[in-house]
């Protein structure tokens, strides 16, 4: 207590003593160690991570825009394909119609031709028949005459019989 009275400043806790220099050195060392070995790597790591995140976001944006472009292309291709399909269908329908029309035309021509041909055939047959009939009529007449001459023409009955026979022969030959 006596020392307090003699040297009051020594005991005043607001007045620094030798500890001040120790604290100064201690904090200096701490500052040096943190500033040299701890804080720079942390700053670097933070920057690196921020860069990485930024790069990742950029990549993401790029991928997104790429995907959007691809989708756009895909959609346009689908639309093109749809148009193409519609066009082909339309064309096919037109072609089908044309083919049917053509076929019908052909068939009608063919039918006309066949009918024509048939007519000509019938005409020819008729002509041939007429010609052959003409040729045979003479012979028949001759034969008939011969028969008539060969047979007695006395009675009516015989005469009619001959004629009947002739007619029957004629029918049979026909």
């Amino acid at each position: 207590m006596a020392s307090v009275a003699i040297t009051p400043m020594e005991q005043n806790f607001l007045v620094p003593n030798g500890t001040f220099f120790v604290e100064l050195i201690a904090f200096g060392i701490l500052l040096f160690l943190l500033g040299k070995y701890v804080i720079p790597p942390i700053n670097r790591a933070m920057t690196a991570r921020q860069d990485a995140i930024r790069a990742e976001f950029a990549e993401l944006d790029e991928a997104k825009s790429e995907a959007e472009a691809a989708e756009e292309e895909f959609k346009s291709q689908i639309a093109d394909a749809r148009h193409e399909a519609a066009r082909i269908r339309e064309e096919a329908r037109e072609q089908g119609a044309a083919i049917i029309a053509e076929m019908r035309e052909q068939a009608q021509t063919e039918a006309a031709r066949i009918v024509e041909h048939a007519h000509a055939q019938v005409e020819a047959d008729r002509k041939a028949a007429v010609a052959s009939l003409r040729a045979e009529v003479g012979t028949l007449a001759t034969t008939l005459a011969g028969r008539i001459v060969g047979e007695s023409l006395e009675d009516e009955a015989r005469q009619s019989r001959v004629v009947d026979r002739f007619l029957a022969e004629l029918e049979g030959a026909n």
Partner: peptide, 22 residues
């Protein structure tokens, strides 16, 4: 010079803790 030993010790403890954490 007068040195406050308890202050110095606790300063060292605090400093070492900060350094360990760092």
């Amino acid at each position: 010079m007068t040195f406050n030993v308890d202050t110095i010790i606790s300063t060292l403890v605090a400093g070492v803790l900060v350094l360990i954490l760092g």
